[in-house]
Nucleic acid binder design. Structure first.
Lengths: 242, 242
DNA sequence: ATTGACTCTCACGTTACGGGATACTTTATA
DNA sequence: TATAAAGTATCCCGTAACGTGAGAGTCAAT
């Protein structure tokens, strides 16, 4: 698809697509020899993600950061975007209630406090939207990059050790006791350096196979380890949640 | 109330209030002798209006224009804002449906067309939001029309007379003395039947070329008259303000 | 009398595009 | 097949709505 087709499809301007290309947020998968941008299906999916994030108030830099991150998990992104949209609808509902009140008020039918007049507007009082924006940015970027980057050699050793031992058992079933025990160790280790919910843990596992950067790193310890860990982490999560 | 109190109450920054003051959108009703801004209840009501408009995507210039307009009617503003918020919620609902579909889709449960992936995003396909923004500008127009419709024949004659005389000189420069004198007459005439600020007057001129209903009517007196009047009214405003 | 929280006015910086200029490419139409 | 019309490219300046200090005055409480 060429620029205008995409622009028309999603209702944004051609200039916007140019801009996203410029800043490296959405680079067309291909270009014709004349230099025309050609967008793929994957590009469209990314664009959809971008627009969701935008709707939720993230700025483009943050969006790029998130989507570039090695631990970016589309599934989890979608889930959290879903949550945030629901949150946003709540806010909108409040605003609608507020305006309805205001109309009655201005007709002298009811009275209203100053606070009431601004219900629904307050972005500060809305923990989710603001916090989530930071949580997400930090979670994605910091936890992946910073923390592993700042690991001491000691920690690094421990880290490698776990991977080696997991590699050793990677041909067992992910449901097996041994596998689950090792995965638990992995989970606990992770929670020493970060703070992972079970859901996030599962998401992380999915990334091991979905993101080739991860897959490559992990499979250095043994072919198929990423796949194995992903499965085991999923099982672990499902068994332990609730 | 002082800046920070207001800012905290409604969840915006102090800088924003400063900004609104700077551009004349929300001027505090009073200031202490130390120069501190003091906001009144009326100020708060206006601020609420401003925020509603903002939520609906109007830019500050337009908001100022609307609220400065002599025909601004808070009641009606509230009603239309209410409508637009409902419209917005509809869009949000679509987006939520879309994301839910996407989640299922990405889990391979259902399939999705490209269009479906962007439902709720498309601002073009959403007539209300975009159009309404213009319509609302047009409200100023329509009400003006209403008024001219109700003119007596006597007034109508006076009205036509001005237009004919303007048409006669429409090939002069809008800055010329004659043009400016005629435009002044026009301005004074308008202020007999309505109440136009200079800014509103300028805005009216812009509408003469932007709104074809106006353009058509006016150009009946002479091709290009609308354009000429718009230019002359702009000059007149700029020269006479402050 | 001093501290800390507020406030003021500059004034420059930033984000996410808009919009025009100019030139090339592709598609539609005669 | 020529020629117009529509689409696309890059370059680059503009703008809207604040953010973010800097430097200085003000106010309420200890």
């Amino acid at each position: 698809m060429k620029v205008k087709e995409v622009a028309d499809l999603v209702g944004i301007s051609v200039r916007t697509l140019h801009h996203y290309d410029e800043i490296g947020l959405l680079i067309p998968e291909d270009t014709t020899e004349a230099g025309y941008r050609v967008y793929s299906e994957k590009n469209l999916e990314d664009l959809q993600q971008i627009l969701f994030f935008k709707e939720l108030g993230f700025n483009l830099k943050k969006i790029k950061e998130i989507m570039d991150s090695p631990i970016f998990d589309r599934q989890e992104a979608l889930r959290m975007q879903h949550q945030m949209l629901l949150e946003k609808r709540k806010r909108l509902n409040k605003m609608i209630a507020t305006i309805e009140k205001t109309i009655k008020h201005s007709q002298g039918e009811i009275s209203m406090s100053s606070e009431e007049k601004f219900e629904g507007f307050d972005f500060n009082q809305n923990p989710y939207e603001k916090e989530a924006r930071e949580k997400w940015g930090d979670k994605a970027v910091d936890q992946a990059n910073e923390k592993t980057k700042n690991m001491t050699t000691f920690e690094q050793e421990r880290f490698n050790d776990i991977f080696r031992r997991l590699a050793d058992i990677r041909h067992l079933s992910p449901e097996s006791e041994k596998a689950q025990a090792m995965i638990q160790e992995w989970y606990q280790y992770l929670n020493k350096i970060g703070n992972y919910s079970l859901e996030a843990f599962k998401g992380l596992g999915e990334m091991y196979v979905n993101d080739e950067r991860f897959t490559k790193n992990i499979d250095q310890f043994g072919e198929g380890l990423a796949q194995f860990m992903c499965a085991a982490m999923s099982v672990y999560t499902d068994r332990n949640k609730k």
